[in-house]
Amino acid sequence: MKLNFLKENPILNILDLPPTYDIDKYGRPIVRMRDLSENDQSIRNEYHAALEEVLNHGMLIKGPEVKETENLLKELTGKEYNVLVSCASSGLLLSLQAIGIEEGDEVITTPLSWLMTSSVIKQLGAKPVFVDVCSDYNINIDLIEDNITSKTKAILPVHYYGKVLDSPRIKSICDKHNLYLIEDVAQAAGGKINGSMAGEKADISVYSFGPMKNLHALGDLGCVSTDESEIANNIKYLSECGVKNNEICIHPNLKHYPDAIQASFLRVILKRWNHLINKRINFANQYSKNLSNIQEIKLPTYLNLGSHTFFDYTINTPSKSFRDKLIQYLFENKIEAKVRHPLSICEQPFINTDKNCKCTKARELVQTSLCLPMHYNLTSHDIIKVSNIIKKFIDI
């Protein structure tokens, strides 16, 4: 059967998506949503040294840096076994494969995430079961048990925007019903709540260290973390094409293993991860201080210092029309901003969820949320400028 992947889906004609920054229309932004350039010369020097090290030994795919970085990750993940993989999407897929998720199974997950959180479930023939979220964008734990059936095999929540989940509560539900807890920690690496690292309480936690993330390599890289040696061995085996002794294929699979260069670059960042997360929290606190008196918008909240890593600083507005007008005003003043994911996953064409989907809070939040610039090259001046432009918009 020939598939026409480029055939236009009718749903594309009815989507009312928010505006995006057009550099031809607005010019170069004076404050970027993401600025991934590296201006710290000492870090640049370390990157160059890391590259030289890999070039010298020539083991570009699975060099010694991979194992060294996996050992360094124990402090960040709180897990005994940390298996680097090509990217977080691979990590999610491999995690589901490693616990035997197959056609007909159900995995409870959130409608707010990057689509790969659910896409990997669908790829295995299983069904993503969506549980609505709370006002903090994370899965509503009170609703989880109502969605567990005899087909449920795992729960896969997300620490969305970097807000750390109440994982112990979810883990207790998993233990009660004999389910696996797999946490998507892609946006919350380095977060901590009640003394535990984000993802530490899960059976399996999956991290992204791609360039956009708070802690990053200079290209795609992911990690699967667990305290169970059998799961770790399964992940590694599956990531290497399902091959034993380099040549004997037992379980056919794709390549998902990492390269030494990205592992080496990640080591540079892992040396200073606490400092970097604190820097992000400081930026968020400056935003909150500057925007605290604006009644029309709701600011992010968190339990204590470190329980939100602020992958994004996300505000909530009264309505979609208000939000989209605010975006337009920011653009006109050369400020980049973004609606991180303008559709809940249950509205994505590949899901085709029926119209009776109960994820009403998730749909409301994607219509009213807005992410402000957040990256390590921000300055206090940038934050003041963004805040003042928002205040001017409110006063119009």
Results as ranks from 00 to 15, higher is better:
D354V: 02
H256W: 03
N194G: 12
A337M: 00
K25L: 10
G125Q: 06
M374V: 00
V131F: 02
F311I: 01
Q295H: 11
N214S: 14
N290I: 11
E332K: 14
S208Q: 01
R28C: 02
L370W: 13
V206R: 07
T226V: 11
S288W: 09
L55Y: 14
S319N: 03
T317I: 08
F350G: 00
D146M: 08
A154N: 08
S369T: 12
D259F: 14
T317N: 08
S95N: 03
N234T: 04
K255A: 12
F393N: 13
Q41G: 08
P258V: 01
C174I: 04
Y302H: 10
I297T: 04
V185I: 13
P252E: 06
N39D: 12
N304F: 15
N140A: 08
I390E: 11
I14A: 13
N293I: 01
V120I: 09
L36H: 10
A188W: 02
A154Q: 08
V85Y: 12
V107N: 03
N178S: 10
K338Q: 05
E38L: 14
D227T: 13
D259I: 14
K67H: 10
L55F: 14
V224F: 06
L3C: 04
N290C: 11
P300Q: 05
L365S: 01
S95K: 13
S307H: 05
I394R: 09
S167A: 15
E347S: 13
P157N: 07
N214H: 00
I250E: 15
N377C: 11
H275C: 04
R272P: 02
S229M: 09
G242I: 00
V339Q: 12
I148N: 06
E247Q: 13
S307Q: 07
H375V: 04
Q328P: 12
H341K: 09
Y160N: 00
E53Q: 13
L76Y: 00
L270S: 01
D105G: 01
I182N: 03
S119Y: 14
L266E: 01
T301I: 05
N56E: 14
N71W: 03
M212G: 12
N274D: 15
Y376A: 03
A362M: 04
K122Q: 05
V131T: 04
G78V: 05
D136H: 04
A189W: 02
K255F: 08
I173V: 07
S229K: 15
L303K: 14
E183A: 06
P349F: 13
T117P: 06
A198R: 07
I390P: 04
G190Y: 03
D142S: 12
I30R: 13
D105P: 09
R169Q: 09
L305N: 10
I269V: 13
K171L: 11
R272E: 02
Y207W: 07
K127T: 09
